[in-house]
């Protein structure tokens, strides 16, 4: 994991897209949030949401292919923590509505957990020439054609107040 701090209130962390690396990043985020907020609940909630979001990136954006990079920007804005999760993998056309699936379903609880853990989250895909719309949970989707072929960055932003 790589870390670079821009100021007293911001730091950028980077890992390879492997499931084994996610814990390192999540523990680091937990410690940062605990340092900033002094609240165990806040730190756990951010870690919970970030773990789900980064798992999604590893699994769906990069299809479990290692050797891709996941960059996480953490910063404290007054009484709020902001976590930006950046990847260059497959983009989401819309941010799913956070609904709890039936018990039978083994997966797809991630967005529910993210929604319950942070105050706000949104998603955007940007590339050199243009920025896609900001997508909100359960909101309107977007239709990107052939985005895989153009270099682009997906950003999921999590906001948590303390």
């Amino acid at each position: 994991m790589l870390a670079r701090s821009e100021s007293n209130y911001a730091i950028t962390l980077a890992i390879r897209s492997e499931a084994e690396q996610v814990s390192l990043l999540c523990e680091a985020l937990h410690a940062l949030c605990l340092y900033a907020s002094g609240s165990v609940e806040c730190a756990l909630a951010v870690q919970q949401a970030a773990a789900e979001a980064i798992n999604n990136v590893v699994e769906h954006a990069y299809h479990n292919q290692p050797d891709n990079e996941i960059i996480v920007g953490w910063c404290q804005e007054e009484r709020q923590i902001r976590v930006d999760i950046l990847d260059e993998g497959l983009s989401m056309a819309r941010l799913p509505k956070p609904v709890l699936p039936d018990f039978e379903a083994e997966s797809s609880r991630g967005w529910w957990i993210i929604n319950a853990s942070v105050d706000k989250y949104f998603y955007q895909t940007i590339c050199d020439t243009f920025a896609g719309p900001v997508l909100h949970p359960g909101g309107m989707g977007t239709d990107f054609k052939d985005l895989e072929n153009i270099p682009h960055t997906n950003i999921l932003t999590l906001l948590k107040r303390f």
């Binding site: 999540c26 919970q48 773990a51 018990f103 083994e106 997966s107 991630g110």
Partner: peptide, 16 residues
Amino acid sequence: TFIDSSACAVLISAFK
């Protein structure tokens, strides 16, 4: 010390 939704999925599959 920490658990995520993929771990829940494992528990559900064992339960089923």
